[in-house]
Simulated scan of single mutants.
Amino acid sequence: MRSIARGLALTATTLAFSTLPCVGAAGAAGGAGTGAGSLYAPSALVLGVTAGESTATGTVLRAVTLSCAPTAGGTHPDAVGACAELQSTQAELDSITTRGSRAVCSKEWNPVTVTAEGVWEGKRYSYVHTFGNPCAKNSGSGTIFDF
């Protein structure tokens, strides 16, 4: 009787330990893209262009999605270029949107606001910048808000 009990205990222990690696692998695969068990920090943003000084009172002209990790994608027309710009500036959008240009723009006040909301390298990310007019936006915004 003792040998049967020992045999059942040994079998139960062997089964318990042999299924643990499978559970761990399934858990890691199931967490891909969510940050848990993932090999990369997620970087996904919703980019918007709004006519007006404020996103609360303005009219959204266009919005796109941009995902940069693990590969560039989303509805942005140049996802690869936009991700490259973000990565080269460490997501400091002011250095992209306000860089100097040789464009000559009128001084008319026709504000355009750009926004970036989401997650960058696993951290919450929010950016808002208002340009005086569409010409000013297009003269220094790189490829990120070029949609």
Rank of each mutant, 00 (worst) to 15 (best):
H76L: 05
K137S: 00
T113P: 02
G27L: 14
A103Q: 00
A91C: 04
V128Q: 12
T65I: 11
S139T: 01
P134T: 01
G74F: 03
S126T: 15
N133I: 11
T71R: 06
G122R: 07
S126G: 14
G74Q: 02
A29T: 09
E108A: 14
N138H: 06
V64H: 11
A12S: 10
T130Y: 03
L45C: 07
A16E: 03
L86G: 10
C68E: 04
S126H: 14
F131W: 05
R99Y: 03
P42W: 00
Y127F: 15
G58N: 08
Q90T: 09
G73Y: 03
L15W: 03
T65M: 08
T115F: 02
A26V: 13
S54V: 08
G81M: 02
E108H: 09
T71I: 08
G7N: 07
G140Q: 08
V60G: 06
N138Q: 13
A44Q: 06
T89S: 12
D146S: 08
R124E: 12
D146Y: 01
T89D: 03
H129A: 07
V119W: 00
V23K: 05
M1T: 13
T50D: 03
G48W: 02
E117Q: 03
I144T: 11
T55Q: 12
A12M: 13
R124K: 13
V80H: 07
D94A: 15
A82Q: 09
G142D: 06
G142S: 06
L20G: 06
T113F: 11
R6M: 14
V80Y: 09
A56S: 14
A116W: 07
E53M: 08
V119Q: 05
G122M: 04
A82Y: 06
G24S: 05
S38L: 11
A51W: 01
G140F: 04
R2Y: 02
T13C: 11
L86Y: 11
P42R: 07
H129V: 07
G31T: 04
T130A: 11
T98K: 02
E117A: 02
A28S: 10
A9T: 15
N110K: 15
P42M: 02
S54P: 07
K137H: 02
Y125P: 08
S141E: 09
E108K: 08
L8N: 04
A51P: 00
W109C: 03
S54Q: 09
G81P: 01
E117R: 06
S38A: 15
E85C: 09
I144E: 00
C68P: 07
T19N: 03
G81F: 02
P134D: 00
T34K: 08
G37F: 01
A91F: 07
G33H: 05
T89C: 09
A26Q: 05
P70M: 14
D94T: 09
D146L: 05
C68N: 07
L47E: 06
D94R: 05
V104S: 14
I4S: 06
H76C: 09
S38Y: 04
A91W: 08
K107D: 15
R102H: 01
T57P: 08
A28K: 13
C83Q: 10
